[in-house]
Amino acid sequence: MGEREIAIVSFAEVIVERSDRDDCELLLPVLKRALGDVGLTQQDIGFTVSGSSDFLGGRPFAFVMATDVLGAWPPIRESHVEMDGAFALYEAWVRLQHGDLDTALVFAFGRPSQGPLHDVMSLQLDPYYMAPLRPDALSLGALAARAALDAGLTSEDELARIAGERRGVPTSTSEPYLREPLRAHATPTLRDGAAAIVLAAGDGARALSKRPAWIRGLDHRIEPHSLGARSLTRSVSTEQAARGAGALGFGADVAELHARFAHEEPLLSRALELPASTRVNPSGGALAQDPVMVTGLCRLGHAARAVHEGAARAIAHATSGPCLQQNLVCTLEAR
């Protein structure tokens, strides 16, 4: 585990229902704001890393044009993960541990409006045995929700209540099923979006922010891919990452969970052993806004923002893969 003090000092996001802009146009104001809020420009950044997926646009090298937006001149130290931006933040955090660089810019972008996202996600499955069956993401979510209901971990009433709170609209179990047992309100609200976070180390972070959100711990783990080879009612990789990140017993005021389906919230809360005093997803989370490939980075951003605005401790969680296959946990604190 890293020993250098690293903090999130800035966060910006733009989330829209359906962007008529391309990825670059979507990114530009977000990058400007994340850097501008702490008085930095790209030239001040030691390491830059992003997350995105080519499959959202159905084209190779979606991330390449982002280097134009960055104004990567003179040339910059830069990397990219084909993962949610939260995992890009992990790469940046590791890079800053080396001690030779003091700042990092992390960003992500995604426009699921470019295609039938839930169907596209089926191409993420085992290409030989699973993908040919073409189960869409909603169906897999429903499968896991059924397992959670059958195991008594939640109820349809609770799913409606969680969805209503996150979306800020009235919800009811009298609504029709979208994929039984999931109603539309318990599934993600797809959005186009982009987000950026600035990380800074040590005194640099203190100089940039009155109240930096210090990364106390950061870890991520993956589970078997096949849904038949793992439990759908217990998020083992979240438990492992939570231990690695020091999230158990952390006593967070706020937890931002990357729960794309309502039943994933109680599942993740249990894996993180969140006490009743922790406020879960005050931002609304993915049920309210799910800019795919960006949503996890936004959880880190919103958790950090909670600390910037007065919370003592916050937990952020991000996920990847079908039915919570891969999970990242970050503990943030004021010092």
């Binding site: 993420q124 893969g321 891969q326």
Partner: peptide, 24 residues
């Protein structure tokens, strides 16, 4: 295959470990 590392986690003994996927 979208993000094939998810499906490859088992074959590479990554289960229970951190796994990263780079694309540059």
């Amino acid at each position: 295959v979208m993000m094939p590392e998810l499906y490859l986690a088992d074959a590479l003994g990554a289960v229970g470990k951190p796994m990263m996927r780079v694309h540059t």
